[in-house]
Every structure is written in structure tokens, then in C-alpha cells.
């Protein structure tokens, strides 16, 4: 596709961080075959905040799982930072996740036995950073993301929004190449959602994080710099925000969604 050529041309400047090339994922065996992803090709550049939107069952979570190596693609290649992650061996996968990726899941996935501080610090202790350094980094980041007051609390004692912000802090504290977020606002009320999305936005604009976010909520997607639409395991639209204000971007997204939703019979 043209995107691929664009990538090779601009190899030096705005480098392609993530590249999916004809990725497919098939479940099942004899008789019952489910195609979750069907020939998906996508390029994400450094510094982009990409939202992946689609209805339930469209394969967007599967896509994220394949990128994050939690699941494995059955065909195609995925390249992150120059490394082909579909070729990585079992033993290398854990290290890869530790060093290159950050996660924010819908239910925050914080460890309930650790305090907020320890949850964020875990991303660094796993990498073997110096304890003194860890303490500094975590406190610093917590201040920036506004979760200082919950550092000594346990996840059960935090509100949903606070938990997600702690998860976001954990995702970025190790300076990963790519942050993956799966329906981060899914379980939050509208106010907490807004706060979290602003945090994600500032992580992208001020700290330069590259974020790949899966969502079914157009409002969340409107915080991104680019939205990709998935349906039945295929990408079928790609919207760049450019310099448009968020409200307009949001409208455009809603239009595509309406088109997506109404088009039940058109296949």
C-alpha cells in the first residue's frame, strides 16, 4: 500500500515505530474457524496517539494482544522498533514486554497486594533499576500525573479514576517505546474518563509517548491524533486529526461510526 512506500521513504526522519504487515489471526480447528484478524496492515510513527475503534467483536482487542505479544498472530509480521516480534522466542518475550512496552488495561490490572507506589515501581524493579533512582522517578511522575495522594494506598482504597491514572503512570515510568491501552475509560464515569484522557494526552504531547489505544467510545478516540477503524477483522478507515480542534475531530469520528453502525447488511 501507499503507506508502506511512505514508510521506506521517510525511514530517517519520522521513523515508523510499529509496523503490522498482513497480520492475520485465526482461532479454532476442525470445522469451526473464527477469523479474528484478516490481513491487517498498519504503520504507527513515533509520537503518534492512535485510537483503534470498532464495535464489539471487531477484533480490536485481538489486534492489541498480538502487538503486545500476549497473543500471537497466525500470519504476517509485526515489527516494533526494528525488531520482528513474531519471531521472538518464548524466553525473549517477557524481556521484550518489560523493556519496550507499557500497558493500561480496562480494569487497570494493578496488583491488589501492592500500594500505588509499589505498583508503579514494579515496572522499574523488573528492569533492575537502582532503588534510589526508582524512588525518585516514581515520585516525580506521580506528581506530574497527579496521583501523589494515592501512592501509599492500596488499589481497593482508590477510586476507579485514580487506579487508571496509577496504571498510566506505571505504563510510562519505564520510558517504553510503545504504550498500549485497552479500553482504559471503559469502567470509568465521564468525569474520571476526561481526567484520564487528559493525562494520556499530556503523556503524548509533553512526554512524547507513542500510544496505541483501543476503544469503542468516540469521546475517548477524540483525544487521539489519529483514529483507525476496524470491522470484522479488517481495517477500513483511517482518520488523521491534523490540526483540527477536538470537537470537529469528534464529529468526523461520529460520522464514521454512524456509517459503521448503520451498515449492518452492507458487506
Amino acid at each position: 500500500m501507499s503507506e508502506k512506500m511512505a514508510v521506506t521513504a521517510v525511514a530517517g526522519s519520522s521513523a515508523a515505530l510499529l509496523e503490522l504487515s498482513h497480520v492475520g489471526k485465526i482461532y479454532g480447528g476442525k470445522g469451526v474457524i473464527t477469523t479474528a484478524l484478516d490481513d491487517v496492515s498498519l504503520t504507527v510513527h513515533k509520537g503518534e496517539f492512535v485510537a483503534i475503534m470498532g464495535p464489539s467483536g471487531s477484533g480490536k482487542s485481538t489486534l492489541l494482544n498480538c502487538v503486545s505479544t500476549i497473543d500471537s498472530a497466525t500470519s504476517g509480521t509485526i515489527t516494533l522498533g526494528g525488531r520482528d516480534i513474531t519471531r521472538l522466542r518464548r524466553a525473549e518475550l517477557a524481556n521484550f514486554r518489560r523493556d519496550e512496552l507499557g500497558f493500561i488495561f480496562q480494569d487497570s490490572n494493578l496488583l491488589d497486594t501492592l500500594t500505588g507506589f509499589e505498583n508503579i515501581a514494579l515496572a522499574l524493579t523488573l528492569k533492575g533499576e537502582h532503588p534510589h533512582q526508582i524512588e525518585q522517578s516514581v515520585n516525580e511522575l506521580a506528581r506530574v500525573l497527579g496521583v501523589e495522594e494515592v501512592l501509599q494506598k492500596y488499589p481497593q482504597q482508590m477510586s476507579g479514576g485514580q487506579r487508571q491514572r496509577v496504571a498510566a503512570a506505571r505504563a510510562i515510568v519505564g520510558n517504553p517505546k510503545l504504550i498500549l491501552a485497552d479500553e482504559p475509560t471503559g469502567a470509568l464515569d465521564s468525569k474520571s474518563s476526561a481526567v484520564l484522557l487528559e493525562v494520556l494526552e499530556s503523556m503524548n504531547t509533553r512526554m512524547g509517548a507513542t500510544i496505541l489505544m483501543v476503544t469503542h467510545d468516540a469521546f475517548a478516540a477524540s483525544y487521539s491524533t489519529r483514529t483507525v477503524f476496524v470491522r470484522d477483522g479488517r481495517l477500513f478507515n483511517d482518520l488523521s486529526r491534523g490540526d483540527t480542534p477536538r470537537k470537529e475531530y469528534y464529529q468526523r469520528i461520529m460520522e464514521v461510526m454512524a456509517f459503521l453502525g448503520g451498515d449492518l447488511d452492507a458487506r
Binding site: 496488583l111 497486594t113 509499589e118 532503588p131 524512588e135
Partner: peptide
């Protein structure tokens, strides 16, 4: 004793 505590998944083990 941060020097001892903040290593690997020691925090997790201790809390468990």
C-alpha cells in the same frame, strides 16, 4: 530499606 526492597519482584513476594 528501599535498597533491598525495590528489586525484581521482591515487593510482590513480600506482600503475598
Amino acid at each position: 530499606a528501599k535498597g533491598v526492597y525495590l528489586k525484581g519482584i521482591r515487593m510482590f513476594t513480600v506482600r503475598q
